[in-house]
Amino acid sequence: MNTITIAQASAATQWQSLVTDFGSPLMVIDCAKVLQQYQQLCEALPGVQHYFAIKALPHLSVLKTLAQAGAGFDLASSGEIDLLRQMAVSPRHTIYTHPIKRDIDIRSALRFGCTTFVVDSPQEMEKFLPYRQRVALLLRLSFPNPSSPINLSRKFGCSPEQVPLLLKLSQRMGMTVKGLSFHAGSQCPNPDNHVRAILTCAGLINDSLQYLNGRGLGVLNIGGGFPVPYIDEVPSIHTFCSKIRTALTALPAHVQVISEPGRYIAAPAATSVSSIMGIAHRQGRCWYYLDDGLYGSFSGQLYDYRRYPLTVFSDQHEREHAVLSGPTCDSIDVIAEDIRLPRLSMGDLVIGHQMGAYTIASATDFNLFPRARDVVINPPDETGMNLSL
């Protein structure tokens, strides 16, 4: 269930000024927060090179902010490559982590200059035979995480027991495998699965010498999954990564450690602003219809299993049973129900927090309602609007 904060009506002024200037709904992206999250992750995992998962928040200002800070980028499609082409990013600072690729995807990445790819099966490895002199591969392993709300080892990844077979196959194919990769699950409640995966991979890296003619593996991609607070509290990033830092000491000294964070950097960096466009009373509840909903910025409630902290503004003390609904004709388009709110009016604002990850990215044009307009504050350069909240 969403948590809803009732703020004083005067606190809506800063948001209302944006709606006056740009209309509603809005998604306000704060690039200063993007930078802050990235820097905190770097401090929590010193020596780890972070490749931002573009899929979480594919916005040019976000990517420019991270590029200027020294981040790399995790690619999963030709469309994401096209987005990077709009800015000066060295392809050496990219990895292509989608384990399943078409030949056209491989060729698109190679034209861009990306040469590190993730695979998880013999069938995927075979796709690189025509390009084996140009690429280096990471083997993705599966480490299921029942405690994570999104188990990213369900759809991808080989078992640790398959690694020796895949390494031997790479030798027969003349293919370069330079490391291992895993994803411990998204929005992990604790780092235990990261630790288990790292220690397992450390053993496999030590054993790899016998399968790769003494060359061994030199890269470990520990994925993402670092949690952020939505409704429930989570450990700070420094606390969460403490056990991970300890586990990484089990790796041979030559191993380069990388990660592919998405949610941790993106989620706190965007705030949604929507307006009440309709009001109805039925079955003892007041229904407030917003100009944004589950088919728009709140799509993460469906696809990402997230509930977002919300704020409404009122000086009234009385509360009534209410529902917050999206604008479309579909009855599934309900943001929050069984909630108690003060009496609101047409045009009043509803603010959604922690909404940067997997929201804009999965929003649709259903019913042809316009998507929320992006407003960038604290931009990295002149491409954004120089606003400050």
Rank of each mutant, 00 (worst) to 15 (best):
M1S: 13
T3Y: 01
A9Q: 14
A11G: 00
A11W: 00
L18C: 10
V19R: 09
V19M: 06
T20P: 00
D21E: 15
D21F: 04
G23T: 07
L26A: 03
D30Q: 08
C31G: 08
Y38S: 11
Q40R: 15
L45Y: 04
L45Q: 01
V48H: 00
F52Y: 13
A53D: 00
I54T: 08
L57V: 02
S61I: 01
K64Y: 09
G70I: 04
A71T: 05
D74H: 06
D74Q: 05
D74G: 05
L84F: 07
P91L: 04
P91I: 03
R92I: 00
I95E: 00
Y96N: 10
T97A: 06
H98Y: 07
P99T: 13
P99L: 04
I100T: 09
I100H: 02
K101W: 05
I104E: 12
I104M: 00
I104G: 00
R107D: 12
R107S: 06
L110Y: 08
R111H: 12
G113I: 01
T116M: 10
D120T: 13
D120K: 10
Q123N: 12
E124C: 06
P130W: 04
Y131P: 09
L137V: 10
R140S: 02
N145S: 14
S147T: 14
N151C: 07
K155P: 00
P160C: 02
E161H: 07
L165E: 15
L166V: 08
K168N: 10
M175E: 05
M175I: 13
L180N: 03
F182H: 03
Q187E: 14
C188A: 15
N190W: 03
P191G: 07
H194M: 04
V195K: 06
V195I: 13
R196H: 12
I205N: 04
L209K: 05
L212G: 06
L212M: 14
L217S: 07
N221C: 14
N221W: 05
I222D: 01
F226K: 02
Y230H: 13
I231V: 15
T239P: 01
F240S: 08
F240H: 08
S242A: 15
A247N: 05
L251D: 02
A253N: 11
H254S: 07
V257E: 02
R263K: 11
R263C: 15
A266H: 04
A267Q: 11
A269N: 04
S272W: 00
S274V: 05
I279T: 07
A280S: 14
W287C: 03
G293C: 08
L294Y: 00
L294C: 13
Y295H: 15
F298N: 05
Q301G: 12
Q301R: 11
Y305W: 03
R307K: 12
Y308L: 10
V312G: 01
H317V: 12
A322D: 09
V323Y: 09
L324K: 02
G326Y: 02
C329T: 15
D330Q: 13
D330H: 15
D338E: 15
D338L: 07
L344R: 02
V350G: 02
M355Y: 01
Y358Q: 14
I360D: 12
S362L: 12
S362G: 01
S362W: 03
A363I: 02
F366I: 14
F369N: 11
R371Y: 05
D374C: 13
V375G: 07
V376K: 00
P380A: 12
G384R: 07
L387C: 06
